[in-house]
Design a binder for these strands. Structure first.
Lengths: 260, 260
DNA sequence: CCGGCGGGTTGACGTGGATCAAACGCAAGG
DNA sequence: CCTTGCGTTTGATCCACGTCAACCCGCCGG
């Protein structure tokens, strides 16, 4: 998708090994400076020189299989994770067995911000498909963001965005009815796929009806019924987890519909 | 509105006027370094020297009357506010008229974190009683936290804590029933009053039943009924907005009660 | 080919909380 | 003293969603 940019990257591209032996995939995986996600992820707006320093900071990568935990509630917090590929959910659970999905995360988004406050993760992060993440030692990130203003500010924006997003979910859970919630959820997913260069109209859900329900504060049967209703009304085409949005404005209208 | 600030303040403290003429209250209000809230607020863990630099950063104070807006959704973001005294709510509202209280804030807590992400406030902050806040220019805070590691880390913790808190609210809205929600809410308030040296068992609610309901995703009638129920069950004594918790463990048990 | 299984759909019914409506109680103002 | 008004309480009814249960469908292994 994008091979140019950053000193490291230019070096690699012009070397014999890179062009002859190493597969493109491996090259791309090497660093932030030539990561296709850099405009979605932490490196936004950094200068090439700064980007190089960020490269040094992303020390390890982890691959996860579908179903693997990236971290669990209660584990000591050490890393922030940037999603390179794949799809995650985070959930919290309380003693009595109740649990709730607090979010779904996709490429370029950060995981682990919840752990900063108490040095311990407060939720579970679970891969919903085979995934790869960059592990960023948080103390290093703090160090570097003391030196790179842009990085610092962007990191603050990311945390703030998470807070704003959570407020949106609270709004959804507190005031919307089932179909409005599902419409809002689908439109949100659609937009995020679009931002990543995928079709905003057609995509695969990575999560079960139960997980959607948990996120939206609904039972899976209610989610299923809402899907059926949307299909009857010609808003969606649903096949298993394959979704095609047929009428975006209809969904938006539904979402904003007054109760009175 | 307030005449003492920054460097001026240090002057005042060592001057004859400060010790002889000015009332103690005024002195206390002058700066972080002698603010009674410094163990709850941003200055946690700072050295005296660092504290002095933080003083310079808190440039202005604002007094608000009950009902005043500290900021409104849509206004440009510039300041983080630390609550010196008083009580606030934040709420978001969407086009169709629905709104939701996203939080209640008390002394030592920060307001405005939501604005960082887009340089524009995403919610309204409204004083629920006469209040006073310290306005901290955010760009200055970023600057200082690039120099003071402790401050930086603490600020990150505060943002993270807000995220964790929001997840707790999502849990509450998504999985708890009315009485569980109210119990959780009261216990949370109780604990925060306690942390500030007030009685955890007896306090005045600063917000209406309607505002509680909005926060908890319930209608005011439901909140009222839950209060009545708690009183019948001997868990609370309720008189208007005056609350006395009679049975904390009972409330906790109720909160954690399984549905099955 | 069959049988089992996990996820999804659909239907029938129950219920917690919303809605609608009335009345109360405290406070401010005449 | 009475009025006005807002926040709250309480009751009666309604309805969206939860619950329970049957069934379906695609998938996998035998």
């Amino acid at each position: 998708m994008d091979q140019t940019q950053g000193p490291v990257n230019r070096l690699v591209l012009t070397s014999a090994r890179a062009t002859k032996v190493m597969p493109a995939l491996e090259v791309v995986k090497a660093a932030c400076s030539n990561c296709s996600l850099r405009e979605l992820c932490l490196p936004i707006g950094l200068q090439p020189e700064e980007l190089k320093r960020l490269d040094e900071l992303v020390s390890t990568r982890r691959r996860l299989r579908r179903g693997d935990h990236l971290y669990r509630a209660g584990q000591p917090f050490e890393f922030i994770y940037a999603i390179r590929s794949g799809f995650f959910k985070t959930d919290v659970l309380i003693e009595d067995g109740r649990d709730q999905v607090t979010g779904f995360q996709m490429t370029g988004e950060l995981l682990g911000l919840d752990g900063i406050s108490s040095e311990v993760h407060s939720c579970n992060a679970i891969a919903l498909e085979d995934s790869e993440v960059c592990a960023i030692p948080f103390s290093h990130l703090e160090g570097l963001s003391r030196q790179i203003h842009t990085l610092q500010h962007h990191f603050h924006k990311v945390m703030s965005r998470e807070i704003v997003r959570d407020h949106g979910v609270m709004m959804l859970l507190g005031t919307m009815r089932a179909e409005e919630r599902l419409a809002a959820f689908l439109l949100n997913l659609s937009q995020r796929f679009k931002a990543r260069g995928y079709s905003p109209a057609e995509f695969n859900l990575r999560m079960s009806r139960d997980e959607i329900g948990s996120y939206l504060g609904l039972k899976l049967e209610t989610v299923s019924r809402a899907f059926s209703r949307f299909q009857e009304d010609g808003l969606l085409a649903v096949h298993q987890r394959k979704i095609r949005i047929l009428n975006t404005t209809g969904l938006k209208k539904l979402m904003t519909h007054q109760r009175g």
